[in-house]
């Protein structure tokens, strides 16, 4: 019992230390980000291109199929109430407010986040970061911040692309396969999706973009500099991002709806 208690306390302390470290790391990124954005925009744009282009295929594929599933399930549920024409509204609201931001963040973590974590981790393991330090170049500013900002900037766009493809998927299934009236599919969607709904989605995707990018560069930068350590950092990136994004999704939803 006493062992269990000391273990629990130990775990808690480690957790809080990690959280503090993450907080300080985040602050230092925020402090230097504006300067990097102004002075070295080309470094940031290259990373927007990297993480954006990297995730595009998976976003397009998954978006299409998520939308098609929504079309099937939505149609099946709505026709029980005789409300099939509401399919457009149903799909758009689920996507814009929830599925778009959340799934994009999870896919981003799996594709771009892991790549960022392992890239930075490998740079540490192979002394590239130490070599920069020795050339009087701060790796936080030269390596970490451009990658962080690249993720933060690309995430809302990826979420928007995900939503558009997914709505097309729902349209394809609902209208072309299930015979929902095309006019009511779109007109109901226009009539019922409010600006506030879209804003909610944008806020979420921005927050998740910060979370996913921060965790990826943090895990990579602080990984143990061995092959095993880099592997562990990559896994942790996906697991922790998923947990944090889903918890924050609930909190954000409660705050934005409430």
């Amino acid at each position: 019992m006493k062992d269990f208690l000391t273990d629990a306390v130990q775990t808690l302390v480690t957790f809080l230390q990690g959280l503090g470290q993450l907080g300080l790391f985040f602050v230092s990124l925020l402090v230097y980000s504006p300067r990097t954005l102004v002075r070295r925009p080309q470094l940031v744009m290259r990373q927007v291109y990297n993480s954006g282009a990297m995730s595009l295929t998976i976003i397009l594929t998954c978006g299409l199929f998520v939308g098609m599933v929504l079309g099937l399930q939505g149609f099946d549920t709505l026709q029980r109430f005789g409300a099939e024409e509401a399919l457009g509204t149903f799909a758009a609201l689920s996507l814009v407010k929830e599925l778009g931001p959340v799934l994009t963040a999870l896919l981003f973590a799996g594709r771009a986040g892991t790549a960022l974590a392992s890239e930075i981790g490998l740079m540490r393991a192979t002394d590239q970061l130490a070599a920069m330090e020795m050339m009087a170049v701060d790796p936080i500013r030269r390596v970490v911040i451009p990658r962080f900002l690249g993720g933060v900037i690309s995430m809302p766009f990826l979420a928007a692309i995900f939503n558009m493809v997914a709505i097309f998927g729902a349209y394809l299934v609902g209208v072309s396969f299930m015979g929902v009236d095309e006019g009511s599919f779109w007109s109901q969607m226009y009539a019922n999706v409010a600006v506030a709904d879209i804003n909610q989605g944008i806020i979420k995707s921005v927050v998740f973009g910060v979370v996913a990018s921060l965790l990826a560069v943090f895990e990579g930068y602080n990984s143990v500099p061995t092959a095993e350590g880099v592997g562990r950092a990559t896994t942790r990136t996906v697991v922790i991002t998923a947990i944090v994004v889903l918890i924050m999704d609930y909190m954000l939803t409660a705050a934005l709806i409430g």
Binding site: T126, Q128, A131, M134, A136
Partner: peptide, 19 residues
């Protein structure tokens, strides 16, 4: 420290070239 390091060149064990 950074000013001092600019007067130094260091070769790491495996070169540490930026990949």
């Amino acid at each position: 420290l950074y000013a001092m390091r600019r007067k130094m060149g260091m070769l790491f064990q495996n070169g540490a070239l930026l990949t």
